[in-house]
Nucleic acid binder design. Sequence first.
DNA 1: CTGCTAAATGAAAAATATTGTCAGTTGCAC
DNA 2: GTGCAACTGACAATATTTTTCATTTAGCAG
Lengths: 152, 152
Amino acid sequence: MKLSDRSITATLRRHGYKLTPQRRVVIHTLTSSPDHLTPAEIFEKVSKNHSGIGLVTIYRTLKLLVELGLICELHTGDNCPSYTAGTPRHHHHLICSGCGKVVDFAGANIIENSLSTLEARLSHESGFRIDDHLLEFTGLCQVCQERQSPSG
Amino acid sequence: MKLSDRSITATLRRHGYKLTPQRRVVIHTLTSSPDHLTPAEIFEKVSKNHSGIGLVTIYRTLKLLVELGLICELHTGDNCPSYTAGTPRHHHHLICSGCGKVVDFAGANIIENSLSTLEARLSHESGFRIDDHLLEFTGLCQVCQERQSPSG
DNA sequence: CTGCTAAATGAAAAATATTGTCAGTTGCAC
DNA sequence: GTGCAACTGACAATATTTTTCATTTAGCAG
């Protein structure tokens, strides 16, 4: 789910973080862009309207937003990760291996469909020629669960 | 599918690449490890048995093996990617967010199951507590397809 | 509004990750 | 065994990210 500037800034304040112009402009850059952006790309966009902002601040802001679960970090295979506004749980991406374009797809019933059904549907709806897929489940293994439990 | 040393080296030779001791030891390190390894980890392991091998050679070998589709590159969210022996198509991973352990899961019928069914089955079989998932389809968008087609 | 304080910023340097260059070495076809 | 193209290691260069620290500022109290 893509969040608005307001809900992101509200969460920042709720957690006791200050709302600086730099943070605002990074957040707005992310929410107003349909694409996933690398730190360097964000820096470039941000610098146009807010000259003087440091790349370091971009990194710090992105890190903070990821920690708070307000934006989504994506590793496509290039060296650096890219970011987009949106809750990080349940990423569903359609990636073009030609130009690197990333399209998010969503829908409540995704999880109820088989991969082959999804692939056919997405291919039809988006015009992509789908060649491959990556499916990752993230969680805690048994050992780490035991380590986390109060009995341990 | 996990490939053997022999099938990997055979493919190298088939493509006209030379079979150096350095390449052999990198390949063997990957095929003999159940885990995904970062370039630095491979360098460390390799250095024990084959002192003098350069980190640059590790990078070059990994890049080559990825290009040939002989090993699989995985981006888990850390800075650097990790590698494992195995064909890179249709990655299915189970990642522990506690310790970073990566388990591959496979099976011909994965693609016929819904995500919720898979999640339940994996959770039961592996003991993982699954919190999240990432699903990515890779292919060519319409624009890139047209650019690739002979008529363009 | 003014002043205070902890948090945030920017600049530079350091750390980390990856690639490029090139002289010397080596696998492998003959 | 010989020759050549491919490969390697060392170093440099580049790219990405984090650390450090002096200065600035958002948000709060008065």
